[in-house]
Amino acid sequence: DKDKHKNVYRFVCPYAGHFCCSLTSLVFVMEGEGEVLYNTVSWDSHLLEHLGRVMQPAGPLYDINCFNGSISGLHLPHCEIFSEEDMDCLAVAHVTGGNVAIMNPLKVTEAYVMIDIKDLSIFGLIKRMIFPPSPVIAQVLVFLRPITVRQEENILDVHLLPWNVPLSEVKDQHAENTHINTSSKCFLIPGTQYRLCCQPKGSTVQPATEEFDFNFGPNYHPTFEVFVNVRNKEVKLSLMDNTEGREVWVPRRVLTVTSGQDEELPVHRWLTGSEFVNNHRRHLIQKVTSVMEIADGLRAKGMITTEMYNEVHVTEPCQNKMRVLWKALDSGGASVKAEFYRLLKEKEPHLVDDLVSGPNSPQ
């Protein structure tokens, strides 16, 4: 349902049996032919208040409808790792008309909570919080943000989520990004701080640490952001328990070039700001018109002296201003040229585009 920005799943059952949804992992027990519509809905804070403080969501909340009533059972996927004392910690919340009834399962397996159902509406797993937090099965999902022509870094969004959050729901919420397939399974403890590590070392990860949240929507914001130089076609990501200092998700190779891109990205994608300035010296001197605005930015950061700034200011025309400013760029080195490039992209983006895509761009 694109108007409401949510996934609605439709299942047409030809005969009796057990049928598993490959997107949500829900299993429907059908007595005969029927049609089922289902979608996730938000956990209402008022519903949780009715459950009391000892209960919390343990899975997505599903609104399920079957048009001829042929559904008789439901298996809800969970992410718990059971010990002997907490085998009975899971139950099912059945929501009808704003009221919540707690259903005890018929059976709980390593992967599913099974219930018989008669009245269809909204169902979701809940967990009795009697014991301290223990590890659950979780997933690390990696998405690559769209790459723009003038971009110097790839940005990866990394999500830490419970295992029974459907990937399809997260992908739909971040449809503009590309999901990068990698082995995602790990074991995390809710409320524990984790640290994402990235190689090569020049990459930046923010925040430094973050708490694993038992999040079942409606919003799936990235837990970490990773900034990687576009010249790196792959990175290695791993996850550390920040308290114990141990790896909980061992290093994975993650490609930052998606299948939809060319095998070799255009050369300008790999150029640093300094290299771009060096390679386009002649054209920059002839074509840059916002010389004083760029000089203002460089002066504000202490990258050119007052004397140099004044010399640029009194020199005419623009081509001669650029020749004077170029002396400061050469003496300042790569950092000053990189800042010049950043300011140029801000002031004259069309010029940058023309230079990186024109016949005079480096081959």
Rank of each mutant, 00 (worst) to 15 (best):
N215I: 02
N65T: 15
K321Y: 04
A208W: 09
D3K: 15
D119H: 13
M303I: 06
I294W: 00
C13P: 03
L74M: 03
S121Y: 08
L167R: 15
V226F: 00
P190M: 07
L355C: 07
T256W: 03
V140R: 08
G333A: 07
D63P: 01
Q139H: 13
L23A: 15
N65G: 12
D353W: 11
H46N: 14
E225A: 06
H94P: 08
F227Q: 00
I189G: 04
A175R: 07
E307R: 10
V230A: 08
F187L: 11
L188S: 02
G52R: 03
G217K: 04
L188K: 07
G273Q: 00
V257A: 01
E346V: 05
F123H: 01
V8P: 04
T306Q: 13
Y9C: 07
E293W: 00
V54S: 14
R53K: 14
V288F: 00
E234N: 03
M87H: 10
A93L: 07
P218V: 02
P362S: 10
A208M: 10
T40N: 05
S361I: 07
L144F: 09
L344H: 01
R231E: 05
N7W: 06
T258N: 02
S335H: 13
I285P: 07
M55L: 12
W43Y: 06
T96E: 11
M240T: 11
N104T: 14
T258S: 14
H350R: 15
V254G: 06
S335V: 14
N320Q: 15
V277R: 02
M129N: 14
D296I: 01
T204Y: 04
V113S: 10
L141V: 11
G333I: 03
C13D: 05
T40K: 06
H313N: 11
P190G: 06
H5R: 10
L141F: 12
K201R: 11
G260Q: 14
P162Y: 04
A93I: 06
C13Q: 09
E247Q: 14
V29C: 09
P218Q: 03
C197R: 15
L237F: 03
N219I: 07
P362R: 06
Q261K: 05
L284Y: 01
C197I: 13
G297E: 00
V8I: 12
N242F: 12
A175P: 02
Y220G: 02
S357I: 14
S335Y: 10
M322G: 00
M129W: 06
I115M: 08
D172S: 14
